[in-house]
């Protein structure tokens, strides 16, 4: 468990030294990915995964994506096995592709989108600050919660509380973990209160602008959408194979 939590933390942590992306580009790409994920087209899943791996490489998030792959491994193996038993190879392919696209896509998004910049961009779009802060807090809290959970797990491990069959200790770990999440959210609310969040329209200490790299990604994703529509409409995929 500690192994997974550590990797979730590594895989979902924002990396300020990496190539950055305009937050609105990042969030729209995540939505597009979700749109494609709900489609039941097998070739789209393969193409989507290739795209996301390509993006992770371009944006130098290889470490993050490898971390997520490791974290997913203990889920992939039993899930793959069960799906094979109940649904066969095609279902295994569909389930695992979705898992990988989701995991790697989010790792990419979390690693290169600055949570505070996301709030700033949404605020620029006239979205109320209280709503604009929500995705940013989610981006910030997920790696932090993973770290808290890992610390809790490690301390319990050293205390000798984690031994034997996992169902014996897991409820205990989860109870402590949930309590710590509730407390953290309580403290976060207090922090927003005494730091004056939401009392007036905020200023931004730096500007976020579109750069060439954002336009390049916009082009790639637009091409992907156009290709999909063309392929789907005229059955070009079958024509190529």
């Amino acid at each position: 468990m500690s192994f997974m939590l550590k990797r979730i933390y590594d895989g979902f942590l924002y990396k300020p030294d990496k190539l950055q992306i305009h937050p609105l580009m990042g969030i729209s790409i995540i939505f597009v990915q979700f749109g494609f994920l709900v489609l039941n087209k097998n070739w789209v899943l393969a193409l989507l995964l290739t795209f996301i791996i390509f993006e992770n490489v371009i944006f130098k998030n290889i470490r993050g994506s490898l971390s997520i792959l490791w974290a997913l491994l203990p889920i992939i193996v039993p899930l793959g096995g069960l799906t094979y038993i109940f649904g066969g190879w095609l279902l295994v392919y569909r389930v695992l592709m979705r898992l990988l696209v989701g995991g790697l896509g989010f790792s990419f998004f979390f690693s290169i989108v600055n949570p505070s910049d996301l709030t700033r961009s949404l605020e620029k779009l006239k979205i109320p600050a209280k709503i604009a802060l929500i995705p940013s807090l989610a981006l910030m809290m997920i790696p932090r919660i993973a770290k808290d959970a890992e610390d809790t797990f490690t301390t319990l491990k050293i205390r000798g509380e984690i031994k034997g069959f996992f169902l014996r200790w897991l409820p205990k770990v989860l109870a402590i973990f949930i309590a710590s999440v509730i407390y953290r959210s309580e403290f976060l609310a207090q922090s927003l209160y005494f730091k004056g969040f939401g009392i007036q329209r905020r200023t931004h200490y730096r500007k976020i602008s579109f750069r060439w790299v954002d336009l390049f990604r916009l082009f790639i994703w637009s091409s992907f959408i156009v290709c999909f529509i063309l392929f789907d409409r005229y059955d070009l995929f079958y024509f190529f194979i």
Binding site: L13, Y14, P16, N114, P115, S116, L137, L139, M140, P143, R144, Y183, R184, F187, L188, Q190, S191, L192, K195, F197
Partner: peptide, 11 residues
């Protein structure tokens, strides 16, 4: 540590 609202120090 319980009261942080951002990921970067400057923010």
């Amino acid at each position: 540590s319980d009261f942080t609202t951002s990921l970067l120090v400057e923010e």
